[in-house]
Design a protein around this nucleic acid. Structure first.
Lengths: 122, 122
DNA sequence: GGAATAGTTAAGCATGGACTTGAGTATTGC
DNA sequence: GCAATACTCAAGTCCATGCTTAACTATTCC
């Protein structure tokens, strides 16, 4: 059983493009907070906040030695999300087959699908 | 090559718990807008907006027959995100092995990791 | 010991997105 | 045709979150 709020926190962390870029950068090797902050047109404090979010949900890990904090990817960090997706893809892939279509028409009662993609008014 | 903004729109869609619940419900079979709106303590219009977000990023599909719009899961909808994760897990899994540790210590220069988890002031 | 460096925290602003309300349109049943 | 149904759209409110500023702490170098 997956923890619902774990998925939630991982998704909230990943939805922010800056944080995905940080992950990208860390996946090429560990880096200090200042090294990470440098390329972004953003203050030190902002990057630090992103790092805290990433660490809180287990996507990265960091340790402070002296006055320098070094961050690195947490290897299994994306696993819960990968599992969540896997769980949902299998049953989803079954609907929309013949069976799914038949169930759709007999169960709920949309008269009949005469012509797919008839609307699409964006 | 994955489209960056595609991942972005999928993550933005999934980060909202209500939308994940809608997906959950649809994965058990197609449903009309009113059927989806019913169980949530939320207006029709709000649910409709969620459905539009889900459809815009390809996670669901809908068709209108008469005055009834029926929604269903788009089978391959989660595939881009699954791929994105897969791409990032493989290289990430390599760091944090012996090699990653060694690179971390020789490349950037944190003197030496004498004692892991020394800080942790939440 | 004092200045410079590296990071930390808190407060405040600003934007985006979820949700509501309310009015409008198309379809169905009588 | 007219009312009810099922959905659609636009505008507005409100709150969460990203970012900044500014003050603060802990280390290192001289």
């Amino acid at each position: 059983m997956l923890n619902y709020s774990e998925i939630d926190s991982i998704l909230r962390a990943l939805v922010e493009p800056t944080r995905r870029q940080i992950l990208e950068k860390l996946s090429r090797g560990p880096a200090t907070v200042s090294q990470l902050a440098e390329p972004f047109g953003m203050t030190f404090a902002a990057v630090l906040q992103h790092l805290q979010v990433l660490e809180a949900c287990g996507l990265i890990r960091s340790e402070k030695i002296g006055r320098v904090r070094t961050c690195r990817i947490e290897p299994g960090g994306l696993a819960p999300l990968a599992d969540w997706i896997a769980e949902r893809r299998i049953p989803a892939e079954r609907h929309l087959d013949r069976l799914g279509q038949i169930l759709a028409e007999t169960d709920q009662s949309p008269p009949k699908v005469q012509d797919q993609e008839k609307d699409e008014q964006t």
